[in-house]
Amino acid sequence: MRIAILDTYYAKFLKAHYARNKGLKKQDSSAQRASLLAAAFGTSDFYSRHLNGMGHEALDLIANCVPLQDSWARENDVSFNPLLLKLPHRTFRLPVIGRHLAAMPGLMEVALAQVRAFKPDVLYCQDLSFFPGDVLRDLKKDVKLVVGQIACPLPPQSFLDGYDLILTSFPHFVERLKATGIASEYFKIGFDTRVLDLLGNVPKDIDASFVGGVSRHHGKAIPVLEYVAENTPIQFFGYGAKTLPRGSPIRKRHNGEVWGLDMYRALARSKVTLNRHINVAENNANNMRLYEATGVGSLLITDRKDNLGDIFEVGKEVVAYSSQEEAAELVRYYLAHPDEARGIAQAGQARTLRDHTYKRRMEELVPVLERHLAAQGA
């Protein structure tokens, strides 16, 4: 199969990456893409690398990176308006595809040109809010199967309607998506072992951490995190701290944003690390931190969810809490019992490296894509 994997990256990460790598935006698109993927942000090349290793042909498209897309468009003689390229694609309204796509070249139009140039059997979108449904339906003239993957709040139905299949790590989303007439299947995320090679040996010099964002989607988590901040030596890393009140105990312990390998390094430095799911996860464990934290060998203390036991053995591979008081108590207990903490962390890492790697996930994904391609008559 030929698979185009389209993703979007956080704007703050892109800004920080180009600021750190002076002159990168002047390099060709291949060099820029390689640099971005080497940073191990999000799912990076964790899908394409293993798909290519299995004999398929997969290409990563970072659709909202302006310098990268600008370079690719120039290299491939794609006509575009540079001013519109720098505008968010969601500012465009495209009720009539042909006229508006011709009149408003920008990030979305460059991405469409990339997809058509690659001629994939499968377009695999990691951001369901990038292409409107009518654009996807038009793109099906050139693509046999359009697949989306989601682990965040659903976009409007008009963005979902163009998908042939949507995979999700939220078990509760599957039937909801099917009810709209879109095929959907449960598909867990994971951890890529290349991260361990890139990190090397990391000293565990942080007692306890929370690594992640604090935003409106994390509203229910804030009281828990603030309570733990007041009752343990926990340190915070990530984005969104400035959105909190100045008196928040989280802000007093916050160490700033960390992206890609720096994020993994913060986790790897931690003896124990706290996890909390976003509100839309409801009572299901699903997020990337489950696999990232265990993958780098830290003791994961996560919020108790109905399906957590299907992913890890609770109490032996990870630890779970049901209240803010229990979360703080567990952090204090395992800091006071480092040998016990180390044993659970090692068991959690062994489980992730056995069952939850992206190599394993791609071995699970390929038959799903082949089955749905066959159903499309491809």
Rank of each mutant, 00 (worst) to 15 (best):
N286D: 07
E317W: 01
M263E: 13
V110M: 03
A229W: 04
L37T: 00
F80Y: 15
L112A: 00
S48V: 01
L365V: 11
N287S: 13
R289C: 05
G53R: 12
Q376M: 14
G190E: 09
H89P: 05
L14T: 04
T91Q: 13
N287P: 02
G295E: 04
P82R: 04
G343M: 12
F130N: 00
V319D: 05
L165D: 06
E257K: 00
I222A: 08
H50R: 08
D121W: 00
P249W: 03
S169P: 01
A378K: 02
A34L: 01
L51I: 02
A266M: 07
R371W: 01
T232K: 08
D306C: 00
P120L: 10
A4V: 12
T91D: 09
Y227V: 00
Q69K: 13
D121N: 14
E282I: 11
S71H: 06
P338L: 10
D355P: 11
C152H: 11
L85C: 06
V214C: 03
G190Y: 06
E257W: 00
K15W: 03
D207N: 07
Y358F: 15
M288I: 11
F210K: 04
P82A: 09
G200H: 02
S248C: 04
N283V: 03
A113D: 01
H56Q: 13
K15F: 00
R116H: 05
R246W: 06
V228W: 03
